[in-house]
């Protein structure tokens, strides 16, 4: 079967890749584009480790095909820091020790960034519901939620 030739934008840069019809966007990001910050936990939509944005919408990269990415603009964890300068969410995750093994962290950061773009001043409940599709086996979530709320406050200039 002929591979599909796909053009998209990833973290602001135009990219092109070849993929099989059955390859997921997660396979493409990690294997074809070498963007291994997006993690594979379950491959069935349950854990959120593969969270990315597609045209501004938060999705699981494991539940989308690479071919479906044609013409879209994708945001991954690699696009979050500005060069050496960490995003406030990244800094707050470090400050609050909101990670242990770290495999869930890129997904949480991408998901939290997407929340704060829509809702700059979320309640704790809002944060917990928005992040309900991101699983963490290490932290117990509390520090993650605190880090997100603290980053939101800083980003609002509070």
């Amino acid at each position: 079967m002929a591979k599909h030739h796909i053009a998209a934008v990833v973290n602001g840069d135009p990219v092109e890749f070849l993929c099989e019809p059955g390859d997921t966007l997660l396979d493409v990001l990690r294997d074809a584009l070498g963007l291994t910050g997006t993690k594979e936990g379950c491959s069935t939509g349950d854990c959120g480790a593969c969270s990315v944005t597609v045209d501004g919408r938060l999705v699981c990269a494991c539940l989308m095909l690479g071919v479906e990415a044609a013409g879209t603009s994708i945001g991954t964890i690699e696009g979050m820091a500005n060069g050496e300068e960490l995003h406030p969410l990244q800094r707050k995750f470090l400050e609050h020790a909101a990670l242990q093994c770290g495999i869930c962290t890129p997904g949480f950061l991408v998901a939290a960034k997407s929340l704060l773009e829509r809702s700059p001043d979320p309640t704790e409940t809002e944060v917990r519901y928005w992040l309900a599709g991101n699983l963490c086996r290490c932290t117990g979530y509390d520090k993650i939620v605190r880090a997100v709320l603290d980053a939101a406050a800083e980003m609002r200039g509070a």
Binding site: G48, L58, V59, C60, A111, G133
Partner: peptide
Amino acid sequence: IGSTQIQGR
């Protein structure tokens, strides 16, 4: 239906 991520699709 599902999480925020699932809602997106």
